[in-house]
C-alpha cells in the first residue's frame, strides 16, 4: 500500500465506513474475533496474490478500519465476485459484498473504462445491449440469419425465430455477442427450442442478456437496466424469462 496515492481516489467515505459495512455483512451473532484466520478463503481464491491482496487480507483490513487502503486497491476489479471465498468460510462472511461495496466507493470516472463504457452503451438503447445494438439491428440480424438457414439447410425450411410474439411461455434473451459478432451461433439454440416444441419468442426490446452496470457497481443504472428488461418480458405477456447467460 502506498499512502501517498490516497489522493488519487477522492472519496467522501469516512474512516469507519468499511468497518461498519463489514460488520453489517457478518452472519447474525457473528463478530470478527471469531474469524479463525484459517485462510480457506485465500487459499481457494485464484485472485490471491494479485495486486498484493487476497480475501483474508481484505476482510482483516476492513475489520481494522483501513478504509483508505481498501479504497485504493485495484484488486476489487480483479476479483470476479465468484463467491467461492464465502462458500468455504466457516463463518459464512459475505466477502464478495464487501468487495462490491468497495467498487461502489470508486468515483465513476476512475472505475475501469471498459466496464463503465459497456454500462453507458447499454443505457443508450432500449435493448440493454452493451454493444449498442438497436431493436432494428437485432430484428435485421435474426431475420437475415433465419432466411439463410431456410435457403441452405435441408430440413430446416420451417425453422422459426419468433420476434415480439405475444403470450408465449418463454421470453428468450441473447448475449449481444451473438447477433453482433457471431450470428450463426444463435441457430443451434433455435433448433433445440424448435426440436422440443418450445413456445418462445425474442423481444426486440430488452433482449440483451448482459448487464455491465452491475459489474460497474452503478446501482441506479443496474436497476434501470433490469427494470427495462423485466418490462419487455411483461409487456409481451411471457411466462418465463429464459436467460442464456
Amino acid at each position: 500500500m502506498n499512502p501517498e496515492s490516497s489522493s488519487t481516489l477522492s472519496t467522501d467515505i469516512t474512516a469507519p465506513t468499511f468497518r461498519r459495512r463489514a460488520h453489517d455483512l457478518l452472519p447474525r451473532d457473528g463478530n470478527y474475533t471469531m474469524c479463525l484466520s484459517c485462510g480457506l478463503c485465500s487459499s481457494g481464491c485464484p485472485a490471491s496474490g494479485l495486486a498484493d491482496m487476497d480475501p483474508r487480507k481484505f476482510v482483516r483490513m476492513a475489520a481494522l478500519g483501513l478504509d483508505a487502503e481498501l479504497l485504493q486497491t485495484p484488486w476489487v476489479w480483479m476479483c470476479t465476485l465468484c463467491k467461492r471465498c464465502q462458500h468455504v468460510c466457516p463463518m459464512n462472511i459475505d466477502i464478495p459484498s464487501l468487495i462490491y461495496h468497495a467498487r461502489t466507493c470508486w468515483p465513476r470516472e476512475q472505475r475501469p473504462k471498459g466496464v463503465v463504457a459497456s454500462c453507458d452503451q447499454s443505457l443508450r438503447t432500449k435493448t440493454g445491449s452493451a454493444m449498442g445494438a438497436s431493436p432494428e439491428d437485432f430484428k435485421f440480424v435474426v431475420d437475415d440469419v433465419l432466411e439463410e438457414v431456410h435457403a441452405v439447410q435441408k430440413g430446416f425450411e420451417l425453422l422459426r425465430a419468433p420476434m415480439n410474439k405475444p403470450e408465449t411461455f418463454f421470453f428468450l434473451n441473447q448475449n449481444s455477442r451473438e447477433p453482433m459478432t457471431e450470428p450463426d451461433e444463435m441457430v443451434p439454440l433455435w433448433k433445440i427450442l424448435d426440436h422440443v416444441g418450445a413456445d418462445w419468442t425474442y423481444g426486440s426490446l430488452g433482449w440483451a442478456a448482459e448487464n455491465y452496470c452491475m459489474f460497474a457497481a452503478d446501482e441506479a443504472a443496474w436497476e434501470r437496466i433490469v427494470r427495462e428488461k423485466v418490462k419487455a418480458v411483461e409487456d409481451l405477456g411471457a411466462k418465463v424469462w429464459l436467460n442464456t447467460e
Binding site: 485464484p46 494479485l50 485495484p74 465476485l81 468455504v88 466496464v115 455491465y212
Partner: peptide, 29 residues
Amino acid sequence: KSNNYCCGGGGGALQAGFPEARRAYGLRK
C-alpha cells in the same frame, strides 16, 4: 460443482483492463 473455481472472466474482469491479472487468475482453471 458448487466448489468449482471461477474461470477468471466473471464480474466484469473481461473488460476491466487488467488482462495480465485476469490471465494469472485463469492459470488455476
